[in-house]
Design a protein around this nucleic acid. Structure first.
Length: 287
DNA sequence: AACATCTCCTGAAAGC
DNA sequence: TGCTTTCAGGAGATGT
């Protein structure tokens, strides 16, 4: 399930391979992966003979800039994969879009569950590209400010887990990394956000950056489906401390990792290190 | 505002 | 063993 580190890894592995290349043919095998605006025909026509001039990541979105000003934007959601092939193998069942470049290389978008989307937008049409314009700050961005982050918690009565999953509050986090951040911060996922003390919010701020940087260094987490832009798995799944580890020993104390649905998602936490903030808001997390 | 529930979708895993 | 049911989840829509 690609979150910020996985999307960043796809970008880094893919961009050097396709930057400067010109799109020759566009094949859409499953039309419902093409998001607004416009028809699939317009989408294909809009890509024809365009060069990839650059690219960046924003939240979980991959943005490729094309000459002429349009942007090709992907959201991989759960099972989406985007990778480059020089000599394409026979396409798989769930390959939905293939861009062939003039030099023969191909960019392939496949997605088993088909939740992923691809958008082609002109300048001024960015609002149609998924949640691009509704995204909160980038956790690793140079402008991400601690004081602003602390203030943003003020009237948030919801649970911290739900808040960190909210892309308009903070961009790029998903279920795996939120659990890892809360574990490293000794905070129970059900703690009301506005019950958190300043030092706890500071901890989230720091641990968020720390976990994301480590995960990017490990080229992302492959739980099942995720691959980078060259089709390779990530390594960070071996370094997850709580996610997917129900019943295993906590890496910090003698207790065992529990699993509970919070904010509609499986949440993994140590009941000893991460005391329930509802019952014990003054918990320091020591156990 | 906050939270639950449903939808989309497939395939792995669990249940019987 | 083999069939059926459940579960996983990002995010938007809808209901309470």
């Amino acid at each position: 399930m690609p979150e910020l580190p996985e999307v960043e890894t796809v970008l880094r592995s893919l961009l050097p391979k396709i930057k400067g290349k010109e799109i020759n043919t566009v094949r859409v095998m499953h039309e419902d992966v093409v998001g607004w605006p416009g028809s699939v025909k317009e989408f294909s026509r809009g890509l024809f003979r365009k060069k990839v001039t650059g690219g960046f990541r924003r939240g979980k979105l991959l943005v490729f800039e094309l000459n002429g000003g349009k942007k090709l934007i992907f959201h991989l959601r759960m099972t989406g994969r985007l990778y480059y092939r020089i000599n394409p193998a026979p396409l798989e069942k769930h390959s939905h879009l293939v861009l062939e470049f003039v030099d023969g290389g191909t960019l392939i978008f496949e997605d088993t569950r088909r939740f992923g989307r691809v958008y082609l937008v002109a300048p001024g049409e960015e609002c149609y590209a998924g949640n691009l314009e509704k995204l909160g700050p980038e956790p690793l961005g140079p402008d991400f400010d601690l004081e602003e982050f602390v203030r943003a918690f003020d009237k948030k009565k919801g649970r911290i887990k739900a808040l960190l999953l909210n892309q308009s509050f903070i961009a790029g986090l998903g279920n795996i990394y939120v659990d890892e951040i809360l574990f490293r911060s000794n905070i129970h996922p059900e703690t009301p956000a506005n019950n958190l003390e300043k030092h706890q919010i500071e901890s989230i701020f720091l641990k968020m950056k720390e976990v994301l940087k480590e995960a990017i260094a490990g080229r992302g987490t492959t739980f099942r489906d995720y691959r980078d832009g060259e089709g390779r798995s990530g390594d960070f799944q071996n370094l997850l401390q709580v996610y997917g580890r129900e019943g295993e020993k906590c890496p910090r104390c003698s207790d065992f990792i529990e699993r509970k649905k919070v904010a509609g998602r499986s949440s993994f936490f140590c009941p000893c290190c991460q005391k329930d903030g509802i019952n014990d808001p003054s918990s320091t997390g020591e156990c």
